[in-house]
Amino acid sequence: MAEMEISRELMLKAMHHRDVKAHLQVIADRRKKRVEQLAKAEGVEMTVTTVAGVRPGGRPFVNIVSDNVDQEFGTSRTARRRILGRAAAG
């Protein structure tokens, strides 16, 4: 049986390949669209954007960000909707 060791450098190179980063954005855009659909269906006003970056360990990411934090966890004045959480789950 042959063994192959994958180095950290190879993993970083693969993670930072333009196609990998592009696909992360594609996935985030799909989830963003779902967030916008859920918000519209439930009458929740929110602006949704994506933010791309690299974690301190070197792993790239794309996060979905909303300006309506209260709806996610609920407050004494806002019902808990969990729109971001539900969109991320499915």
Rank of each mutant, 00 (worst) to 15 (best):
residue 19 D to L: 06
residue 19 D to T: 07
residue 19 D to N: 07
residue 19 D to P: 00
residue 20 V to R: 00
residue 21 K to V: 10
residue 21 K to L: 14
residue 21 K to E: 07
residue 22 A to M: 10
residue 22 A to V: 03
residue 22 A to W: 06
residue 23 H to F: 12
residue 23 H to M: 01
residue 23 H to V: 07
residue 23 H to A: 06
residue 23 H to C: 06
residue 23 H to R: 15
residue 24 L to Y: 10
residue 26 V to D: 13
residue 26 V to N: 05
residue 26 V to Q: 14
residue 26 V to I: 12
residue 28 A to N: 08
residue 29 D to H: 09
residue 29 D to S: 11
residue 29 D to P: 03
residue 29 D to F: 00
residue 29 D to M: 05
residue 30 R to N: 12
residue 31 R to A: 08
residue 31 R to T: 12
residue 31 R to E: 02
residue 31 R to S: 03
residue 32 K to H: 03
residue 32 K to F: 07
residue 32 K to W: 10
residue 33 K to V: 05
residue 33 K to R: 14
residue 33 K to H: 12
residue 34 R to V: 03
residue 35 V to H: 04
residue 35 V to G: 07
residue 35 V to E: 11
residue 35 V to L: 09
residue 35 V to T: 07
residue 35 V to K: 04
residue 36 E to I: 04
residue 36 E to G: 00
residue 36 E to S: 08
residue 37 Q to H: 08
residue 37 Q to W: 06
residue 37 Q to P: 00
residue 39 A to Y: 10
residue 39 A to E: 07
residue 39 A to H: 09
residue 40 K to E: 14
residue 40 K to C: 02
residue 44 V to S: 14
residue 45 E to K: 12
residue 45 E to V: 11
residue 45 E to P: 01
residue 46 M to K: 02
residue 47 T to H: 09
residue 47 T to N: 15
residue 48 V to Y: 00
residue 48 V to A: 05
residue 49 T to G: 04
